[in-house]
C-alpha cells in the first residue's frame, strides 16, 4: 500500500481526535504497528495534541486530590505478578527450544501484517462499493431528470390495442414537438418470438416513417426524432425492423 497517501488522507488526524469508528480505529492501530512512517506521523500528531491539552490545563480544586487518592487507596490491592521469579533450568533441550520463540514472533508479525492489510483493503473496498452505488444512483437520477424534462412539455399520445390482435394492448408515447424527441412506455404488449421485434411508425401525411425497433422493457425508451406526425402505430416485424410496415401485424394505433 501507499503509506504516503495514507498519511495525507487525514485519517490519522481523525484518529488522534478520537473521531473514527471501531473498524477504522483498529485499522490505524494495526497499520501504524507495521509501518514506521505511519507511526512516526501519528506520534507527532498525538504529541501536538498532548501539548495543546497541557497548555489548556485547568487546576482541579485542591481538596479533590485527597478524595481521589483515598478512593484509589480503598481499591483491593492488585495481584502481584512475578512475585517469585522462576529461574529456568538451562539444559541442552531448552537451548534448542529457545530458538522457537523467535520463529513464533516472526510468524506472528507476518500474520499481523497480513491481517492489517486485509482490514485496510476491506475498508477501502466497502468505501469503493458505496461510491460505485452512489455513482449508479446519480446516473439513474440524471436519467430520470432527463426523462422528466423531456416529457414535461411533451404531447402525450395513447396507442391503443386493435381488436384484431390484443384489445388490451397499450403503449404511451411522449412526443416533444419542440425538440422532436419521441419516448415510449410499453404498458401492455404480447410477448414476441425471438426472431421478431416491435417497430414504431409515425404517419406523416399518409406515409409511414420508421422510428426504430424496441424490446419489451420497463421504463421509458428513447426512439428516433420526428418533426411532424398525425398518428403513431406499432407493428410486429422481423428482428431489426422492416423498411415498410406489415399492416396485417399492426398491434396499436393512436392519433395525435
Amino acid at each position: 500500500m501507499n503509506t504516503q497517501e495514507y498519511i495525507t488522507s487525514g485519517i490519522l488526524e481523525d484518529y488522534a481526535l478520537g473521531l473514527l469508528g471501531p473498524q477504522e480505529t483498529k485499522e490505524v492501530e494495526c497499520l501504524s504497528s507495521i509501518y514506521p512512517e505511519i507511526q512516526e506521523h501519528l506520534r507527532q500528531l498525538e504529541g501536538a495534541l498532548d501539548r495543546y491539552a497541557q497548555a489548556k490545563a485547568v487546576q482541579p480544586k485542591p481538596e479533590l486530590r485527597g478524595n481521589i487518592l483515598a478512593a484509589i487507596d480503598q481499591l483491593p490491592p492488585k495481584r502481584q505478578q512475578n512475585e517469585t521469579p522462576i529461574v529456568p533450568l538451562v539444559t541442552q533441550e531448552a537451548k534448542i527450544r529457545s530458538i522457537r520463540p523467535y520463529q513464533w514472533a516472526a510468524a506472528a508479525s507476518v500474520v499481523l501484517a497480513l491481517a492489517c492489510l486485509a482490514l485496510y483493503f476491506s475498508t477501502r473496498q466497502t468505501q469503493q462499493e458505496t461510491l460505485a452505488q452512489l455513482e449508479q444512483i446519480k446516473s439513474e437520477n440524471e436519467q430520470l431528470a432527463d426523462n422528466y424534462q423531456a416529457i414535461r412539455s411533451a404531447t402525450r399520445v395513447e396507442l391503443k390495442g386493435l381488436e384484431t390482435k390484443d384489445p388490451e394492448a397499450l403503449v404511451t408515447l411522449f412526443w416533444n414537438k419542440q425538440s422532436q424527441e419521441v419516448r415510449i412506455e410499453v404498458n401492455q404488449l404480447p410477448a414476441t418470438a425471438a426472431d421478431k421485434q416491435y417497430q414504431l411508425w409515425a404517419l406523416v401525411d399518409g406515409n409511414p416513417v420508421d422510428l426504430g425497433v424496441f424490446d419489451l422493457v420497463n421504463g421509458l425508451q428513447v426512439m428516433k426524432n420526428i418533426p411532424k406526425a398525425q398518428a403513431f402505430a406499432i407493428t410486429l416485424e422481423k428482428k431489426g425492423g422492416s423498411p415498410a410496415p406489415t399492416l396485417s401485424e399492426m398491434y396499436v394505433l393512436g392519433n395525435v
Binding site: 489548556k56 490545563a57 485547568v58 487546576q59 482541579p60 479533590l64 487518592l69 487507596d73
Partner: peptide
C-alpha cells in the same frame, strides 16, 4: 504497574490539571 500506591500520587500531581482541562471543557 507494580501496584505502588505512592506512584498514583505522583501521577496525580503531574497530570491532574492537564486531564482536568480536557474533562472540564
Amino acid at each position: 504497574k507494580a501496584g505502588n500506591k505512592a506512584a498514583i500520587a505522583r501521577l496525580y500531581d503531574s497530570y491532574s490539571a492537564a486531564l482536568y482541562g480536557i474533562i472540564s471543557r
